[in-house]
Computed example of a mutant assay.
Amino acid sequence: MTMNLLAVDDESINLMIIEESLSEKGFNIIKARDGEEALAILNRNEHNFFAIILDRLMPKMDGIELLRKIKHAEKWKDIPVIFQTAMSGVSDMTDGLDAGAFYYLTKPYSRALLVTIVQTAVEHYIKLQRAKEDLHKGMGALRHLVKGEFWIQSIKESHELAPILANACPNPERVLTGIMEILNNAIEHGNLGISYQEKTELHDNDKLMEEIMLRLNLPEYNKKYVKVLFEKKEDKIQITIKDEGKGFDWKRFLSIQAMTKNAFKTHGRGIFMARRLSFDDLTYEDDGSKAIITIDLKAKESDPLIDN
């Protein structure tokens, strides 16, 4: 399978660095020199793109404008967009998040970081597409689900359960990514005790899944479950996800300041983005080992809360 990436930058040297860094990792790079050219390439539908690397400051059409067009188009909205920018202030970050940016790269950046972030974005996109396929496999009756309890242990089971829970909600595609993120977080960080720093090192060495499988078979972890309770009430849906871990300082990861700090890293943004884009509210109890997702059934529009 050819993995196409769209690289958009008005500087030839930047396009050359992107192509040289990623071509040797098996990616096929399609290049555009400004937003208008990039939009024309997308509209031709000649390539399926797994990620877009986008410069922010460009002539004709800047990165923010193009990003908004991408995220408002049904056929492109899931493609992760990696912003290249020298603008790293909180307001600049907020503008990018509001427009739908998935990752940030500050110029100048190392080739190793570029490769790691692109690989992470592509993995996320592939997982999301596989999960979305399950949304349309005869699970429409799940919208009548009123209450359900589920126990899971592995990432595989998380990816099986997420489409089921999403299909029981009014807007399945909106909540799917967020549910996957919270379930994975409960397994990796909660039950398996993989710390933020450990995940960084494992991810950078492409050993995260190997470590997850190893810990799932160890005596101190293989009896732990993530317990999920789905409840539909008159005005809202609540999904409670409880792991058997020690918890974490969840407030640090739900603030715009935390998002700004982690925007240039390969992980650490998940629960912030889940709350912002997928749910009407997300909070934690029991020192962070219990996540409570709220989906408002009475809201006229599915606008996520913004944590300022």
Rank of each mutant, 00 (worst) to 15 (best):
M16E: 13
C169T: 12
D134M: 08
G35E: 11
L216Q: 12
M139D: 01
G268S: 05
Q153R: 15
K251M: 08
D204G: 09
N184Q: 14
I18M: 07
L54A: 03
I152L: 15
E37Y: 09
W250G: 00
K107T: 10
D235M: 03
L305T: 09
Y221S: 05
I53P: 03
D287I: 01
E285C: 05
I295T: 01
G245P: 13
R68K: 15
T106K: 10
G63H: 05
E160T: 05
M139L: 15
A99N: 02
K236Q: 12
H144F: 11
L15G: 07
M273N: 11
K60H: 12
D134H: 12
I152N: 00
A299I: 01
G247Q: 09
T177Y: 06
A263L: 08
Q119W: 00
Q257I: 08
Y125E: 12
A166P: 00
K147H: 14
D281I: 01
D243E: 05
R275L: 07
A7S: 14
L142I: 02
G35A: 11
R130S: 08
L218K: 13
I293T: 03
F279S: 01
I126R: 10
M16F: 08
H144A: 13
E133F: 04
K265S: 13
H72E: 15
L216S: 04
G148S: 14
I29G: 05
I29A: 06
E160F: 04
K147L: 03
F102N: 15
G100S: 09
E231M: 07
A32Y: 07
E173C: 01
T240R: 11
N4A: 08
L218E: 14
L5P: 05
T260A: 12
D204M: 14
L15P: 05
L214W: 03
N43K: 15
V146G: 00
A162S: 15
L229K: 13
N45G: 06
D303I: 13
N185L: 12
G96F: 02
